[in-house]
Amino acid sequence: MPDRTRTGTGTRRPVERGLGWLRLPLIGAFGFLYLPIAVLVVMSFNASSIPFVWTGFSLQWYPTLASNPQVLQGLLNTLVVAVAATVGATILGTLLAVGLARYTRSVLLEAYSLAPAIIPDLVLAIGLLILFTSIGLTLSLFSVVLAHIVFGMAFVAAVVTARIGQTDPSLEEASRDLGATGPTTFLRITVPSLAPAIIAGALLVFTLSLDEFVIAFFTDGPRTPTLPIVIYSMVRFGVTPEINALGALLLLVSFTVVLAAQRITRLTDAL
């Protein structure tokens, strides 16, 4: 809580009663952000085969979706990528965050470790495409995993770094002074104290990878499209109620995963 640090010094936010006209942008922003999502979810229960004209309630599009082989194959491909990228990014990102915070303390290296999350995805995507073709790596789900790890680890590093500031380094010192080796200290002291941030970071990478389109679009092979690539070709072909249902399900998954991550650690500190 931002206020907690300030109560000690005797100062606090000036008390302001009511938001007054500031309610307007607040309501406007939330309406703008959530209205389209609400429309999409409502329309996924639409009986009509025209995806934007409401005619009545129906659940028919969800079973239709489940029998679409392209969607199912895309989902499977995406899950493979997301799980592999989450494991890789979580390990590398955690090690990097701890190393930077405990040993290096270099602002420059910290910026470098966050750069993959800031660089425009299109630039990263074509750079990786050039790299993979230059070294003769056949584009496949494996190349997507390699690509997703690089920006995923930046997010894990950011979330873990925010948490390290709140942990006590003297525990690690004590462990070492008592004769524990570096790896033992890391696994028995550092990782458990950072566990909430590590898990939250992993959840974020999972949902980011699940939904990531641009980089996958450039680094994936033609025969193993991930789910966002399948959705993209479906949308380009035309809007269908099936996409509404698929979209509603994906939104539900992302919301659940991110809210779970937020419950574990304060994500807003890391952003």
Binding site: L33, Y34, L35, P36, I37, V39, L40, M43, P51, F52, L204, T207, L208, L210, D211, F213, P228, I231, Y232, V235, V239, I243, N244, L246, G247, L250, L251, S254, F255, V257, V258, L259, L267, T268, L271
Partner: peptide
């Protein structure tokens, strides 16, 4: 931030409906 963590394609698609 919640919408930002969800599928960008789906959120764009929603505007086609709207």
């Amino acid at each position: 931030v919640l919408p930002f963590w969800t599928s960008f394609l789906i959120r764009t698609y929603a505007w086609i409906l709207l």
